[in-house]
Nucleic acid binder design. Structure first.
Lengths: 333, 333
DNA sequence: CTGTTAGCGCCTTCAC
DNA sequence: GTGAAGGCGCTAACAG
């Protein structure tokens, strides 16, 4: 029982393959009578067009790609990505476009992944975890692959790619001024790895606003690094009274560590996170965090990519600003 | 500047397309001299085989699929999936196989997703979130799609598919007997939705071991449902002294809620979770949880699927048993 | 060891 | 409105 092909349908319907093809993609008028014959033939054979053959003929994969160069432990700690992905999928689904996802480790594998994707496997890619001077940008250009970047500032600079960006400085600024109003003077920041634009932007804004990087520590988004940085900060001779973390996993781990050392939250130490993990609202105390519209951003990004695949020019679009969810860990609510 | 094809390479190397093809897939001996010519020609043109053309010719997509019918909020709360995925990807990557991921909502979309995947987009699928009497099983059979199921017991029953299963009852049994030893008599369980085999198996084992379902509550893996079920349990006239949750998000939310109500953990209430979220070890108190070998299971599952795609027969394989990480939330450590 | 020749299954231009 | 035929880029017999 081989799978039926378009020829089988054509034969059964008493028409040619071309006609069958056209009733399925509406590229030319078809009489109601033959349309009906064809459809019932296809139905009775349970036929639908073969993906690879179609892709080869029209030179379009109807798929987009995401390649993630991340350690599994970081992947698991990231609450942004799954929600972003859901957003992406909602719009892809509407257009019958699939997502091919590749998790790689190492530069080598990453390049290889983009290369094979460019070989007709996908029509474009979404680029996450952008770093400053990202080497993927020239690579993607060379591969002539449609791409949209998820950026943290409007750094379009004629890179030739769409970027869907959010102002990653704004929430830091708001958080700091809020903490200052509450009387905090020694405010620390536990950032992510500095090669990432989001981490860099946030840290840079932190330094500029505070006028010093004395209380800046660099983590790697894992719970462990959250604990380590917190330990380091709290054991100094002049410890902070507030810490802003660059994700909720580090914040939660840091918060618990502080509690275990006898710090009362928020009385002795105010804590804020980033990304608003679904659990954060339910911690004790509830964690103040930055809500980043991951779902919406996924949708916008996918929309942009599809537009570009369909011939639109690259464009830089700003997404909804992030909003702070103030909760008890900073003494709010 | 169109992309070069195999014909361009052949011409430049002074050989035929067939020869080029064979130096790239080693399906027959090639003299060192021509091999060299071909390779340098390919390199200079920056050519590599077009994915769709190759897939069409060999009738193989070199891709496998996963379709997830989940609400975004649940996706975000699930720490098992991303790690499982990483495991899957490590073995797929080794074989140059891609993963196509589809997040759908609703039965309709789910069927459609499997249907298009079966149309040559992938060579097989991994089936997660298995439910009892899963309607996808007959569907996949009809589609003649290779599939491996992630199961919670050895329910192979000649379904005609491989299943990679773990005993989901064992950890519940261990947890309960451990709590009994600690003196607990009123032990509650907050499960996931009962249609899932994993939730069902755990709940069923809980009922059998405890001899009653009085303290069983059904959640949906979200933080909110964790709070609601906990609230319900703790407000009863004869509340439990221990609660086992079916994932860490519900456990953490429940734990925090209990704390906020003045319960001391573990003195007044012992708490245990499932899946060992990276954050759980860093909570205050650290959360006892069931470590499920997600990464390893992903690897085994992918291995099985690839084997089957390459002609192996369906097979039921048991994975490493889950292990409990006893921590302070149950009075351990 | 290498060239030749059909396809893989679908789409699309050209005729009618 | 429909049929016929060529081609998308690659692989795999079949020859030699």
């Amino acid at each position: 029982m081989d799978k039926p092909t378009i020829a089988d349908v054509a034969r059964l319907a008493g028409v040619t393959k071309g006609t069958v093809s056209h009733v399925y993609n509406g590229h030319r008028p078809i009489s109601a009578a033959t349309k009906k014959k064809v459809i019932s033939a296809a139905l009775s054979l349970d036929w639908s067009p073969n993906y690879n053959a179609q892709a080869l003929a029209v030179q379009r994969a109807n798929a987009v790609g995401i390649v993630l160069a991340r350690d599994p432990s970081v992947l698991a700690s990231d609450t942004f990505f799954p929600i972003f992905l859901s957003g992406v999928e909602t719009v892809l689904a509407k257009h019958g476009v699939a997502l091919v996802l590749q998790v790689v480790n190492g530069h080598e594998m990453e390049c290889e992944a983009y290369r094979t994707m460019a070989q007709g496997r996908v029509d474009g890619v979404i680029v996450l975890d952008l770093s400053r001077n990202d080497y993927r940008i020239p690579l993607l250009k060379k591969l002539q692959l449609n791409a949209v970047l998820a950026d943290s500032c409007n750094s379009s600079k004629d890179r030739g790619f769409s970027n869907v960006w959010v102002d990653d400085r704004a929430p830091i600024k708001i958080l700091i001024s809020h903490l200052l109003e509450l009387g905090h003077r020694r405010i620390a920041h536990v950032s992510g790895p500095m090669q990432y634009v989001h981490s860099y932007e946030r840290a840079q804004c932190y330094i500029e606003t505070m006028g010093s990087g004395e209380l800046l520590r660099t983590g790697d988004f894992t719970a462990n690094s959250g604990v380590e940085c917190t330990k380091d900060l709290l054991s100094s001779s002049n410890p902070p009274t507030a810490i802003i973390y660059s994700n909720d996993v580090m914040a939660t781990a840091g918060l618990s560590y502080a509690q275990s050392q006898g710090f009362k939250i928020p009385e002795d130490l105010a804590v804020a996170g980033f990304d608003d993990d679904p659990i954060s609202e339910h911690l004790n105390p509830p964690l103040t965090s930055v809500y980043t519209n991951a779902f919406k951003r996924g949708q916008i990004t996918a929309d942009r990519l599809l537009a570009e695949i369909n011939g639109a020019l690259p464009e830089s679009v700003e997404t909804e600003p992030s909003r702070i969810r103030f909760r008890a860990s900073t003494g709010d609510r």
